[in-house]
């Protein structure tokens, strides 16, 4: 037998490419949900590996909460130019303007939950039958249960008790009209795997992943970027701190961590030693033990 170098990153990568090509082969109108975060950036690289020199057999879809870090939007636009693929933007602001959702009130208001409606509307408008997402099973307990091909009913709902068996590496993407499949090619990656892959592949990331100084406030024990999107009052004290973000979401619900990590190597050693999970930096998941399960049942990514 010939020997060859095939380490765990190669294996995870090959599995993800296989899944992406299954999506291309099985669906009429797939889409890749692009959030501007490191996981979806990783998906874009994997799609390049799966389909180049051809075009992606799907557009990228960004659900824009309107509360973005500007750095993410700049990154997105630059990346789209580089890869030459189509970008579709679904706007939460538009959903609010159309009266489909109502802005949350109070100190912890965020647009994170509102995204679901915009996402489902965008899926319906473009008749997407499959949406590729960058969720990983190590992120959260309900995610740990999810299949790689995860079927949603016409209301976008996930029914954890009625998941299809998923055997070997055979993926059943057959659905009825109106249904939709969420597809998670990096299900089996951990946060550290993603970072190691980004380092190995030399992938550029939005600058907010790296330590930088910015104005923050403390909210529920966490550092939040001071921004017009955060409902602040006199009690909130703004101060400057050297921080970075471990996940990139809506500005109103993504907490920063204090960090000196300005290089990817620093980040990797920081994460290896860190004792807080990545989801711990998302206020929205703290609400209850079943927070994620409930949101997914409702149609969330």
């Amino acid at each position: 037998m010939s020997t060859y170098n095939f380490d765990y990153l190669d294996e995870l990568e090959a599995e993800a490419i296989h899944i992406l090509r299954e999506v291309a082969g099985q669906f009429e109108k797939p889409a890749l949900l692009f959030s501007g975060g490191k996981d979806s950036i990783t998906l874009v690289r994997l799609a390049e590996k799966a389909f180049r020199p051809g075009k992606f057999p799907f557009p990228l879809v960004h659900i824009d909460t309107g509360h973005n870090f500007q750095e993410t939007i700049d990154y997105r636009d630059k990346m789209i130019k580089r890869i030459g693929e189509k970008l579709i933007v679904g706007s939460v602001q538009e959903s609010i303007d159309q009266g489909k959702v109502v802005e949350q009130k109070g100190k912890n208001a965020s647009r994170n939950a509102l995204q679901t409606v915009t996402l489902l509307d965008t899926i319906a408008k473009y008749e997407f039958d499959a949406c590729i997402g960058g969720a990983r099973r190590d992120e959260e307990k309900a995610r740990a249960k999810e299949r790689i091909f995860s079927v949603r009913d016409e209301f976008g709902q996930w029914d954890p008790k009625r998941q299809r068996p998923e055997l070997w590496n055979i993926y059943n993407g057959k659905i009825h009209k109106g249904e939709n499949v969420r597809i998670f090619p990096i299900s089996n990656w951990t946060e550290l795997d993603v970072w190691n892959y980004i380092r190995r592949e030399n992938i550029e990331l939005p600058s907010i992943y790296f330590a930088h100084e910015r104005e923050v406030i403390t909210r529920n024990g966490q550092l939040m970027a001071a921004s017009p999107f955060l409902n602040m009052d006199d009690e909130d004290v703004v101060f400057r701190k050297q921080v970075r973000f471990r996940t990139v979401g809506d500005m109103s619900c993504t907490a920063a961590v204090e960090s000196e990590a300005t290089l990817i190597d620093d980040i990797i050693s920081e994460i290896s030693e860190s004792k807080i999970s990545e989801r711990g930096a998302r206020m929205d998941d703290k609400v209850s033990e079943a927070a994620m399960e409930d949101r997914k049942k409702g149609g969330y990514f």
Binding site: D138, K161, Q163, T190
Partner: peptide, 10 residues
Amino acid sequence: TIDVAYKYFQ
């Protein structure tokens, strides 16, 4: 336990 849960460690 009703459904498979996947866990990761190294």
